[in-house]
């Protein structure tokens, strides 16, 4: 025996319950008498349903605003924490680095070659630690949803030349090709960080002496125009099993010594710009990373500012 029979329901009026235009349920009035409800009862029931719907909508809005305020508060607190942490860690590293630099400067001035070499090695080791800390802080920012970029008009080819300059002293030269200027709408500091990560990855996987190629250009397709950086190396390429996960955090290739954050952060930086980072690695032909950010050529006056 069903509930309707159990309750002795012989007639019912049913009206929809809408909250902010969306059907959420129904309001039912039932009676033990046949044909109990009049047109007037139905209109009354509709009014009740509208009223319940409006109250529910208000309650949900309040709930949503409260949740949003809590989220804003949490983000502010997280942002504050990361800023304080960055400042404190900087305060530990700064004096060490300054003293090593001072030793190096003095060794250079007094032409003490062995001390100069040791001071330089210590300085490089400290730089690696500094980059690791900066990367971990960025991972924290990404986790907390407070990783922000400030896009502006930049010339990608100039930025590529500046960034590559730091790599020219190493065993693998960086050869730059492509167009100039390449206007982009991007955060120059973040883009430099992404490109540094791509270049150091390419250098790390290159055979001794083999140059890394960095191409800069504009590309247009169906979804707009993109300013594109392409980094190609002549290394063994990305192993096929690693390819689907290469932009995940803490993923490391066999030749890597870091935490596996460089490509992950580069890809997050591209995404934060509304762009993309992709990799193409046919077996035995090296790896080719392509970083695309929105082009800035619609910005008036940009070409006038470019050198």
């Amino acid at each position: 025996m069903g509930i309707v029979e159990l309750l002795g329901v012989r007639s019912a009026a049913i009206v929809p319950l809408n909250v902010a235009g969306n059907r959420r349920g129904v309001v039912i009035a039932s009676s033990a008498q046949h044909d109990f409800f009049t047109e007037e009862d139905l209109r009354f029931l509709q009014a009740v349903a509208r009223w319940v719907g409006a109250l529910a909508h208000r309650a949900e809005l309040v709930q949503q605003l409260t949740a949003e305020a809590a989220e804003r508060g949490r983000r502010l607190a997280a942002d504050e924490l990361v800023t304080v942490l960055a400042h404190d860690l900087g305060n530990y590293l700064a004096p060490i680095k300054a003293r090593i630099d001072l030793l190096r400067r003095r060794a250079r001035r007094e032409d003490r070659q062995r001390d100069l070499q040791d001071a330089e090695a210590a300085s490089q080791a400290l730089d690696r630690l500094r980059r690791l800390i900066a990367d971990l802080l960025d991972v924290g920012r990404l986790d907390q949803g407070i990783f922000a970029i400030s896009p502006q008009a930049v010339d990608l080819s100039g930025l590529a030349r500046e960034t590559a300059a730091a790599f020219q002293a190493g065993s693998n030269a960086v050869r730059i090709g492509g167009e100039s200027p390449v206007p982009a709408l991007a955060d120059p500091d973040r883009l430099r960080q992404a490109l540094e990560n791509l270049l150091s990855n390419a250098v790390r996987h290159s055979p001794e002496g083999a140059p890394v190629h960095l191409d800069v250009g504009l590309e247009g397709n169906g979804d707009g125009r993109w300013a594109v950086l392409t980094v190609s190396d002549q290394g063994p390429g990305v192993p096929p099993d690693l390819l689907p996960r290469v932009f995940n955090r803490y993923v490391r290739g066999s030749g890597s010594s870091g935490l596996g954050l460089g490509l992950y952060l580069a890809s997050r930086i591209a995404a934060a710009h509304g762009g993309s980072l992709t990799v193409d690695s046919p077996p035995g032909q090296g790896a080719r990373f392509r970083l695309a950010v929105p082009s800035g050529d619609e910005l008036s006056g940009f070409r006038g500012e470019a050198p």
Binding site: N91, A94, P95, A98, R99, D101, L102, R105, R106
Partner: peptide, 14 residues
């Protein structure tokens, strides 16, 4: 930070 202050002062002094 006294450690940083000392280091910068030492370098400028030199």
């Amino acid at each position: 930070n006294p450690l940083t202050l000392d280091a910068v002062v030492a370098a400028l002094d030199e």
